[in-house]
Amino acid sequence: MVTCYTLLMIGLPFAGDGLVHAGLLGLGILAALLFYAYEKRRRGLSDPRLWPIAGFAIAFGAIGSRALTWDVSRQVSLADWWGNGDRSILAGLVGAWLGVHLGKRLTGYREATGDLLAPAVALALVIGRVGCLLTELPGTPTGGAWGITLTSGQAAMLGGPPEVGLHPSFAYEIVFHLAAFGLMWRYRDRLPRSGDLFICYVTSYALFRFGVEFVRGNEVVWLGMSRPQWFLLMILPLLSWRMLRVFGKPFRPKLEGRVA
């Protein structure tokens, strides 16, 4: 029994390796751009303003992932935070959303772009989270045999307990985004309104992320919940209201042609 358990224990092969993390993140961005180009073509969308809008999403998403997590209560300057502070996918998504709206406002593009962007974001997160899985603190201790174990050196570097199986929370997230990508691929032309796909994806991710935060190992700030969970608690009512609007309308039949 001990032998089986030992065999199943998984290590962290690239703990703290920024190059591996950055490489997989870069691959994720590349995959997202290629998918965006493919989907744009499939839908017959040739408006030249769509590439600048994608650019706004990536630039402001990147800035948001660093700047929007800035915690002034910690008495840390923005510059220090920019270099050494937390980065967050959730803050990145908020930044990207703001960027898309700014881009649409400045270019005068009026149509919804969420359906075009949502599967590309999911694909980027599938690949990008592999980088997190291989390099970052995986999660809280788990009693299961599937946990990732850290050596004492890795534990000291990442701030986790050594020789204990830890929840592979990034693997859970990879599975979620993979499933979301598959579902969006299947139903991308069937939701009532343009843009609904993005609402469904973001809402389901918010719910999933709220749950997975309990095993992520992020700092608990109040009432047993982490900062991302408090942020999600604030935006979930708005997302739920938008979801009710999505499913209050009948699905449209599958369309053969091109749909914006």
Binding site: L25, I29, L33, G55, I58, A59, A62, I63, R66
Partner: peptide, 9 residues
């Protein structure tokens, strides 16, 4: 813009 995003991320 994409280049800035890549640099920042």
């Amino acid at each position: 813009l994409i280049g800035l995003g890549i640099f920042t991320l």
